[in-house]
């Protein structure tokens, strides 16, 4: 049995953009993207605007055809078996629109359920269930969609993805523009869904949020994968330094020299009674070596602060590495 629910293999996609009536320009959105998504995980797909994330999401959800390469969802090919893929995938593309404005959220979901092949009774039941699951109360979900706030629209969009109870969820920026509370509710929901065994591929720009919920990250830039791995693994792979702030009773002149000889230092500076160190390597090794040096030199520590690189640092480092 495969452990990968989504396999993306060397996918290429070029758009032809019309400029005026006759003039055309081609834009390479994806230039051989490959990565896999493990079952039951939250996998984040990151990249700047125009990197090709939405194109990839659309290919995975059978909306677009790739020019080349292969995409499989639960072993089903998105090009050759689109009908079967549609049954196992739920998609969120743009949380602010994508529904009939004059119908209510509930009616939109029933329509979608029917389109996906549910019976009317099942579509109505599922619409109620998923709206309840995403936290929309009955009085609000019967109002026309155009009266919804962005937070409510996001919930309806996620509810739509869940109507057919799919095994795989593909969410394109599901918290974009949401207020703190709504964004948190969406995050919690995603974690809950992942725990229930669903495989989730999510894109976004909020690194803090992605770091909190994802098990695996793929960064794409200009249509190519530039980094891939567990967030911690990524930071390590990209060689991002750890920042250590030591507060000592006194800072001898030769201590910096001694630290440099033991630890791979990137940068070190003094600030009053603080010694600020940027070092590369595994956190536990660096801390261990540092403590030993201080003990050996009989330097008591008043305070110590360790700042690890964030996913945002890793993301920026990955993009800078390419450029």
């Amino acid at each position: 049995m495969t452990t990968h629910c989504i396999i993306v293999d060397n996918v290429r996609k070029t758009y032809i953009v019309r400029e005026g009536i006759r003039k055309k320009r081609s834009v390479e959105a994806l230039r051989g993207v490959s990565f896999n998504v493990r079952c039951g995980t939250v996998h984040a797909l990151l990249g700047p605007n125009g990197a090709g994330k939405t194109t990839l999401v659309k290919i995975m959800s059978t909306i677009l055809l790739p020019d080349d390469g292969r995409v499989q969802v639960l072993g089903l090919d998105v090009v050759r078996e689109p009908d079967k893929v549609r049954k196992v995938v739920g998609v969120v593309l743009d949380i602010s629109k994508g529904f009939y404005f004059t119908l209510s959220g509930y009616e939109n979901l029933v329509f979608y359920g029917l389109l996906k092949g549910l019976s009317k009774r099942d579509a109505e039941r599922r619409a109620r269930e998923v709206l309840e699951l995403v936290g929309l109360d009955e009085s609000s979900y019967k109002r026309p969609y155009h009266t919804y706030s962005l937070g409510m629209r996001a919930r309806v969009a996620i509810a739509k993805a869940l109507v057919t109870d799919p095994e795989v969820l593909i969410l394109d920026e599901p918290t974009l523009g949401l207020d703190v509370e709504s964004a948190r509710a969406v995050r919690d929901l995603l974690v809950k869904l992942a725990r229930s065994g669903k495989t989730i591929l999510v894109t976004g720009h909020n690194m803090h949020e992605i770091e909190m919920i994802s098990n695996h990250v793929t960064i794409i830039h200009k249509g190519k994968v530039v980094a891939d791995g567990h967030p911690e693994e990524l930071k390590l792979k990209l060689g991002l330094p750890i920042k250590i702030v030591l507060r000592l009773r006194e800072i001898p002149r030769d201590i910096e020299e001694k630290i440099r000889s033991e630890i791979p230092i990137v940068n070190m500076c003094r600030e009053e009674d603080k010694l600020i160190i940027y070092a590369r390597g595994r956190r536990e090794n660096i801390v261990q070596s540092l403590l030993e040096i201080l003990r050996h030199n009989n330097l008591p520590i008043i305070d110590v602060q360790i700042v690890e690189p964030t996913l945002e640092d890793a993301y920026i480092a990955a993009l800078r590495g390419v450029e």
């Binding site: 909306i63 995938v89 629109k97 994508g98 979608y112 389109l115």
Partner: peptide, 12 residues
């Protein structure tokens, strides 16, 4: 205008 085409294109 309302971009509902995605909803339809991913369903049928």
């Amino acid at each position: 205008v309302i971009d509902i085409l995605h909803l339809i294109a991913q369903s049928t």
